[in-house]
Design a protein around this nucleic acid. Sequence first.
DNA 1: CGCAATAAATTGATATACTAGTATTCACGA
DNA 2: TCGTGAATACTAGTATATCAATTTATTGCG
Lengths: 240, 240
Amino acid sequence: MQAAVVSVPVAMASEAERPAKLRRVTTADAIFDRLYADILALRMPPGMPLQEKRIAEEFNVSRTPVREALLRLSEGGLVDIYPQSGTVVSRVPVSAIPEAVVVRKSLEGTTVERAAEIATPADIGRLDAIISRQRSLAALGDTSAFHEEDEAFHEAISGIAGYPGIWTILRTVKVQIDRARRLTLPVLGRMDNVVHEHGLIRDAIAAHDADAARAAMMHHLSAVIPDVAELRTQYPDYFC
Amino acid sequence: MQAAVVSVPVAMASEAERPAKLRRVTTADAIFDRLYADILALRMPPGMPLQEKRIAEEFNVSRTPVREALLRLSEGGLVDIYPQSGTVVSRVPVSAIPEAVVVRKSLEGTTVERAAEIATPADIGRLDAIISRQRSLAALGDTSAFHEEDEAFHEAISGIAGYPGIWTILRTVKVQIDRARRLTLPVLGRMDNVVHEHGLIRDAIAAHDADAARAAMMHHLSAVIPDVAELRTQYPDYFC
DNA sequence: CGCAATAAATTGATATACTAGTATTCACGA
DNA sequence: TCGTGAATACTAGTATATCAATTTATTGCG
């Protein structure tokens, strides 16, 4: 099943304070990561049918860890499990995207304000490093690596603000938006715009101007809203 | 299978499903709901060791659905699973509580503003009904039922705003706060204060005054922050 | 063609056994 | 006596086989 909307977030602090006893990577974790990446990269497009048994054979494991991975993906809204029927890669719920954008604006607005208040020069340096890498990747046209750095930028701001758990929530919320955005990111010049907007956010944080930082973030988040109407006509099978 | 007969309030929240495919309640769901309720009500206190095998025997089911339930609880931060070692009810991460409050303020602030903008008289009526029930429950001193109505109030506001997915996030974030709050809720007069604060929020929404609604919500959320320092000395085993 | 009976397919759950780490115990030696 | 370390008893992770419950596809008959 799929919660139709912004899916269940992983609780904050569950991973963060594992007392030095680092959780070892289980088979189920590996399967999850692989499927997660494949779905996000659209190598497994929305609507694609999945089967526990087939995946188990493909990875040479039993159904058990595959099932665990699929259940976790289901909670994240990336797959829909229909009992006694089948499992499919979930279609992107277009109706939930506006809500997801609202969540991002709310949380990232709060976060960037706080970051602007307490950022240190070292923090600014880390942001600069990310932006620098993004500039290079934009020039190379490496959209995949660029997207990773984009995530790193937003995660870094959460870290600067002292709200690492908020990033955990945002990552979950962002997934559906990102799946849609993956279809539009190749648009020429978009990556350069992102780099520029990140620079504005960075400058506002460096200047400890909370209001400007929020404004820059709001503008940035508004700019990356995918045009769902157009996408829907272009990839009708990928949305619902 | 006897456990399926054990009637557990499955509807801990809206499982608003698509009409076509409705998901039946699985054994794992029932186990999850039961454990979730027991942990939240502190019938299973933080630090209490759990064992898949023992729980399975207790519910007369196999390990499989128990395991699925524990994995979901783990993602929600309610239990900590140590591979090849054991599972325990998680201690409340005190360091995460302030962050959780920030998330609540951010999201519920956004939500209540939107609700104030578009609330209909019928919506106000629903809020009034909840507040009315809370007033009765406060008089009776039924803290458990009162808490359920408290959840209903905040969920209703999310619904009015048209952001049902935000409630899903909030519920997850609220859990850790609520676990701590359960130790302080019996404070005399607190329930009456909550009723009053809910009334102020309701009035602001009814008046379509977004600013006042946000202010009332901020005040409300600030008032229910548990005194972690005191709790930590009073229940040292429950926090980390 | 319509439709009901039937077969196939798939997830949900059970039972069992085994693996691989983890924590405890307890005898042993400095 | 006090560690120390190896044997030992857990516990979660995985594998396998099997059945149950349900949905979906197929078949065959009127």
